[in-house]
């Protein structure tokens, strides 16, 4: 980028704020970050200037109100690059579960004064409303991912799209396959890498929080889950959770079962 420091904004939509913590968790690298960029807007950390023009906007959260759509379009206009971070921004997040539920019933039963609720019919990932330059998946994303994308953008190169399956990271760490050795319904074979096989590393099956990997065979894995004695609803829940608007997982969830195996 230019000789002057790049300007960075971190915006938030419907989300838990957890992905923004990947910046704050940088530790000593925060000092290096401040040497490289000026943080113009980052409400969770302090700086407020949401209207400013910036080089890179990081966007957390999904779109769930009409006001969100207006605001994200403004952000697009003011940003050279937009990078979305996390399951909400890239694939709807947990709140996209309402896309497959009776929304009005929920609003009536949850809120004391439902007449004040103004929400979109469908929760949307950011890329459904604006052009997104790069997407970082994960629930939440981690500091390693944020650092890698920042380095690439500051160097003027396209960030590496990590799209392999979790199994690759899992086997590189020599974890014993939880599905084969213990019969756990692991989502690793269809889930995108990036977490460092966190759950298999502590003896748990992957639950798919990074969304779908490239070339994910959800039908075959769903079929395997049935053989592991999961019923149709349980298989559905494996696929539709953190990434409710991930088209590959959503489609697998709506089928509920695989045809093969």
């Amino acid at each position: 980028m230019s000789a002057t420091k790049a300007k960075v904004a971190v915006h938030k939509f419907s989300s838990c704020d957890g992905c923004q913590l990947a910046f704050l968790n940088m530790g000593e690298d925060l000092l290096a970050l401040f040497d490289q960029v000026d943080i113009i807007h980052f409400a969770e950390a302090g700086p407020l200037n949401r209207e400013a023009s910036v080089d890179i906007s990081f966007v957390e959260g999904s779109l769930s109100t009409p006001e969100d759509i207006h605001r994200i379009k403004k952000i697009r206009e003011k940003s050279r690059y937009v990078t979305t971070i996390g399951a909400c921004a890239t694939a709807g997040g947990l709140q996209a579960l309402r896309n497959v539920a009776q929304q009005d019933d929920w609003i009536q039963s949850v809120y004391a004064t439902p007449q004040y609720i103004s929400s979109l019919d469908q929760v949307m990932p950011i890329h459904e409303q604006i052009a997104v330059d790069f997407e970082l998946r994960g629930c939440p994303v981690n500091t390693r991912q944020i650092t890698a994308v920042l380095r690439s953008l500051l160097n003027g190169v396209t960030p590496v799209n990590e799209q392999d399956k979790v199994c690759m990271e899992c086997k590189r760490q020599h974890e014993v396959c939880a599905m084969v050795a213990r019969g756990l319904p692991c989502m690793g074979p269809v889930t995108r890498a990036g977490c460092g096989a966190l759950c298999p590393g502590v003896g748990r099956d992957c639950y798919g929080c990074y969304g779908s990997a490239e070339n994910a065979n959800t039908a075959s894995l769903g079929g395997r889950f049935h053989l592991l004695r999961l019923n149709q609803n349980q298989v559905r829940h494996r696929f539709v959770s953190f990434n409710g608007a991930d088209p590959v997982f959503a489609s697998a969830g709506s089928m509920g079962t695989g045809k093969n195996d």
């Binding site: 086997k171 590189r172 396959c177 084969v180 690793g188 994910a216 039908a219 075959s220 894995l221 093969n260």
Partner: peptide, 13 residues
């Protein structure tokens, strides 16, 4: 290919 997950477990082990 309908069954294969292309997960690379086979090549890893």
């Amino acid at each position: 290919a309908q069954r294969c997950l292309s997960c690379a477990n086979c090549t890893s082990v």
